[in-house]
Structure formats: structure tokens, C-alpha cells
Write a protein that binds this DNA or RNA. Structure first.
Length: 348
DNA sequence: CAGAGCTCCTGAGCGC
DNA sequence: TGCGCTCAGGAGCTCT
């Protein structure tokens, strides 16, 4: 089954891109469909012009948003410029790495050719190997998107309100605690982007796997929400990274009906729901990491996921793994909701 | 302001 | 074989 990109899929993409793209320099950009740049306000020409010659400093993620902090061509103070290439996969987006001359991909909307930094240009503090690419080797980064719900855009990075990392970047996830936050050090100035995030993603909550996620705040906010618990779970401003698939899975695991009013769910139950979200996302991320071999040169966001078993989503008519009742699918908010009619009932 | 609903989009899959 | 219909939903926007 083809998986829609939720947090684990986006994390798989991030982990695959990071070794190859970190410190790589953008050599050329080709736009095949301008609709994929709809979030870039300044237009396609500006998009291309800004990116040419820029160095990609990292590959960072919060929820389903990915961004690449940039050092523009000739810019000696990227901390002041503070721009990033922001990507969202929407419903059907993919980010693939190809060698130049590779077969064309269907629905290829944007291609960037980058020059790999290779291991030699990375400082000793970096965990990257260069992604298997030699310094100077050219790589094609392809943005594929059938339904064009996803997008690429250049956006300003702004400071996080809590001075904590703006998103997840494996190698620097514990950067601050490693002393990299020291303001005079070379590393600190290199990591100017660490505690920033794109303006267009600043309104979304930290994601469920973020160590700085505030569970107490979630419990408090849900306690007054008059909307269904699933709608709340999909609200990226309350908790980010969860989409329709993992929402159904987490609700099944917690025995909650999708339309149960959020405010009527007890604090204990909300905490249980959050723990289930975390466990399900972690398991999916782990599965995505199993096919690591292919990821350097074939980042496709689908690797490994076929092996993750689902208990609710897409299981219409199948027996519930707890009680044997047939899983039901109901039309809900322009989507489908899968649940066990016996285990998951609305409680008043 | 909060919450519900609408809209963007197109290939795959299916029925006739 | 070929045509036309239906389905999938993330997130931002627009209503009420």
C-alpha cells in the first residue's frame, strides 16, 4: 500500500537526504510545473535565482515540514539573511536523489542539481559521511508530486519562542547540550539555524517526537476543545506530524471514537493517546530506517513502510485484532475514518 | 475566536 | 479497448 507522507515518512526522507545534501552547493534549478512553487510568493524566477550557488547547511524537520537552511552565494553572514528552502510533501510528494542522466520520473515538478560536499569538506564534529557521494559529485534532487498539494518555497527563518531547536536534525538533536550553543565558538556560528524555523511553519506545534513537546499544554488545550478528538489530533497547531493514517491507528489503540468531543476525554486518556501516538510514530520511523541501504541514492519515502502492520486504517471489513468485530469506515470531514464499532464508542 | 466546511489536484482503479 | 466516473486527503482559506 502506498503510504501518505506523515511524520515517519517525512523523517525517512529527511534522514535519506541529510547525508547527501548537507554542505552541498546548488548548481542549477529547473522548474517543470510552477504550481509546485505556489507557496513561494516572489515567483519562480526569484526562486531559481536565489538558490543558484547556495550552500545547503542542514536538513531539518518539524512534523511534516522539511527545510534546508541556506547560505546564499556570496553571503558571508547567513545568520542575518536567515533563509531556508522549505518543502512540504502534501498528499503525494516525494523527494528523490538521482544521478544525472537517470531515467525521468513521472510527475517530476522541480529538479535541482547539487554538487556534493563529500566527506573532506565536513568538519570533524559532523556525523555525516557525505552520503556515499564524493566531493564534487553531481546529484539530482527531484521533487515529485502527483497531486500538487505539496510545495517548495524559500522562506525566512525566525527564532523559536523558547530558544530551543526549531526542528529535528538527527546529528545536532542534542547540539545545545553538547556545548554547541556556546556563543563564541565556531560551531555555534555554523549552527545559527538551530533554534530557528520557517515563518510559514512557525504556527504549528512541536511534533509528537520532539523532546521539547509540551504534553501538559496539550492536555490543557484539549480540555476546552469542543471539536472531535480526531479533528484535534489532525490539528497541526495542537500536535504536529499526525495525519489520517496514524490518527486512526492511535485512536484505535486508545479505544477512542473519532467523534468523541475532545473536552470530554479525561486527562489520563489524553496522556494515553499521546503515548500511543508517540509509540506508533516511533515504530513507523524505525521501520522506515530498515531499508537504509537504498536511501542515499534513492530517497523515496516509501522504503520499508509496507512492513508496518495497521490495525484500523484501510482495514475496512477486517476483524478487529482485539475483539473480532469488523472494522468500519465512515465518511468524515472529506476523508475516511476507520474504527472498531465495538472498541471505539462515543461516550457521554 | 472557535469550529466546520470548502478547495486545491490528478493518476489509479473500476464498471460498463 | 476505451471511456468516464470515483476516490484519496494536508493545510490554508473562508464562511458562520
Amino acid at each position: 500500500m502506498r503510504r501518505l507522507p506523515e511524520l515517519p515518512e517525512v523523517e525517512t526522507v529527511r534522514a535519506g537526504l541529510a547525508p547527501a545534501l548537507t554542505n552541498a552547493v546548488i548548481k542549477s534549478v529547473e522548474i517543470f510545473d510552477v504550481r509546485s512553487l505556489k507557496r513561494h510568493q516572489a515567483g519562480p524566477a526569484d526562486f531559481v535565482q536565489t538558490l543558484i550557488g547556495a550552500r545547503i547547511l542542514a536538513v531539518v524537520r518539524r512534523g511534516k515540514f522539511l527545510w534546508l537552511p541556506l547560505q546564499l552565494a556570496g553571503d558571508t553572514n547567513p545568520a542575518a539573511t536567515s533563509l531556508a528552502l522549505v518543502g512540504h510533501l502534501g498528499m503525494s510528494g516525494q523527494m528523490l536523489l538521482r544521478l544525472p542522466g537517470a531515467e525521468p520520473d513521472k510527475c517530476n515538478r522541480v529538479t535541482m542539481v547539487v554538487e556534493a560536499a563529500g566527506p573532506a569538506q565536513l568538519s570533524s564534529g559532523d556525523a555525516f559521511s557525505g552520503g556515499g557521494f564524493a566531493a564534487g559529485e553531481l546529484i539530482e534532487f527531484r521533487f515529485i508530486d502527483q497531486r500538487i498539494f505539496g510545495s517548495l518555497a524559500i522562506d525566512r527563518l525566525i527564532n523559536t519562542t523558547d530558544a530551543r531547536p526549531g526542528g529535528f536534525q538527527a546529528e545536532f538533536a542534542a547540539g545545545a547540550s553538547l556545548g554547541l550553543g556556546d556563543s563564541g565558538s565556531t560551531d555555534a556560528s555554523r549552527l545559527w539555524w538551530l533554534n530557528r524555523l520557517p515563518e510559514t511553519a512557525a504556527h504549528i506545534s512541536r511534533d509528537a517526537l520532539d523532546p521539547d513537546f509540551d504534553v501538559k499544554a496539550l492536555v490543557k488545550r484539549l480540555s476546552t476543545k469542543q471539536t472531535g478528538i480526531k479533528r484535534a489530533l489532525l490539528d497541526q497547531q495542537l500536535i504536529s506530524g499526525v495525519g489520517n493514517i496514524y490518527a486512526d491507528e492511535a485512536l484505535w489503540a486508545t479505544k477512542l471514537h473519532y467523534d468523541q468531543t475532545a473536552a470530554t476525554v479525561s486527562s489520563a486518556k489524553v496522556k494515553e493517546l499521546f503515548e500511543n501516538v508517540v509509540n506508533i510514530l516511533r515504530a513507523a520511523v524505525a521501520q522506515g530506517g530498515t531499508s537504509f541501504d537504498d536511501q542515499y541514492k534513492n530517497v523515496n519515502g516509501e522504503s520499508g513502510y509496507f512492513s508496518v502492520s495497521l490495525n484500523a486504517y484501510g482495514q475496512t471489513g477486517q476483524p478487529c485484532k482485539r475483539c473480532g468485530t469488523h472494522i468500519k469506515r465512515e465518511q468524515w470531514a472529506n476523508r475516511g475514518s476507520h474504527f472498531c464499532p465495538r472498541c471505539q464508542k462515543v461516550k457521554s
